[in-house]
């Protein structure tokens, strides 16, 4: 009975955790999964978003509401970020992946250190009434600080999926991922579509940041432990599969929760990376990705 108890709790918290991971990975699923831009700075942007939400929360704003408003400036930030990136590489026609990876690596580092210099290395958190309370159903207990952000993800994924499949903008975005030149022949500027996609991904990062900081305190270096998880999620899902992201993330979340419960919490950070290495080695196209 004890064992089933533990397993059920691990399953529930793992699923909630995975749902949050899916939100963290969503921006990367667009930039890396659809546009093939290896944005290793994405987790750092998420952490920056979490700090922005914490700052707004300091003035009494609800973190999720604040994040929703912050999506606008972050969208604009993303536009600027992509403009810089494409000016530096893509337009000059010498954007190999080494250089763009290195650029994003540098950007991630600068964001981290910028946060350290501006806010110090202390842990930051938000104060909301539901943090500290838990939902109990039978013998399964789930803290609201996991449950609330976990419920945001399905809504975001549904909205994103509807956008990608039902609107012209979404169609253009998928088309740019599929064949850039064909899109430019049909009279649409691929780089403006990509810029928009980057803005979208950055806006999603601030929502993810809100989810992250509701879940637990954040420091400027939190992005390092997230990096492996988000890439594991995107690669396991298969590039370009948005709903697959949720499935992959929940799988990883549950695996981590089981390792935490039945082995030791100190092994948990390695789980996502081990899954990532395994996926890359055995099935590089992921669970739902088309073979490339």
């Amino acid at each position: 009975m004890m064992l089933i108890d533990l397993a059920a709790n691990a399953l529930a918290s793992g699923a909630a955790l995975g749902s949050i991971y899916a939100l963290l990975a969503m921006g990367l699923a667009i930039t890396f999964g659809l546009l093939h831009v290896p944005n290793v700075a994405h987790p750092a942007i998420v952490v920056a978003g979490a700090y922005a939400v914490a700052l707004a929360n300091g003035y009494g704003a609800d973190p999720l509401l604040a994040a929703l408003l912050l999506t606008v400036p972050f969208y604009v930030l993303g536009l600027g970020f992509y403009t810089f990136y494409s000016r530096a590489f893509e337009l000059r026609g010498r954007g190999n992946s080494l250089q763009s990876l290195t650029l994003f690596f540098g950007v991630a580092l600068v964001i981290e250190i910028g946060l350290v210099i501006a806010f110090g290395t202390d842990l930051r958190s938000v104060s909301v009434p539901y943090v500290g309370q838990s939902l109990s159903v039978g013998f399964v207990t789930l803290p609201y600080r996991f449950l609330v952000p976990a419920l945001v993800t399905p809504a975001v994924i549904l909205a994103l999926w509807l956008y990608l499949t039902r609107t012209h903008g979404g169609l253009a975005l998928r088309a740019v991922a599929h064949d850039e030149r064909a899109l430019s022949i049909s009279g649409i500027d691929p780089s403006s579509v990509k810029r928009h996609a980057f803005g979208l991904a950055t806006a999603l990062a601030v929502l993810a940041g809100a989810a992250l900081i509701i879940t637990g305190p954040v420091d400027p270096f939190t992005d390092r432990s997230l990096l492996g998880r988000v890439f594991a999620v995107v690669v396991l899902a298969g590039l370009g599969s948005i709903p697959g992201t949720l499935v992959a993330a929940v799988l990883i979340g549950v695996a981590e929760a089981f390792v935490t419960t039945f082995v030791s919490p100190s092994w948990a950070p390695g789980v996502a990376f081990a899954i990532l290495l395994g996926t890359l080695g055995l099935r590089p196209s992921g669970l739902f990705g088309a073979s490339r």
């Binding site: 890439f231 100190s266 950070p269 390695g270 990376f273 081990a274 290495l277």
Partner: peptide, 12 residues
């Protein structure tokens, strides 16, 4: 990305 994963696995 795989080499990045290697660091965390070894460290763990």
């Amino acid at each position: 990305i795989a080499t990045l994963a290697l660091v965390v696995v070894l460290e763990t």
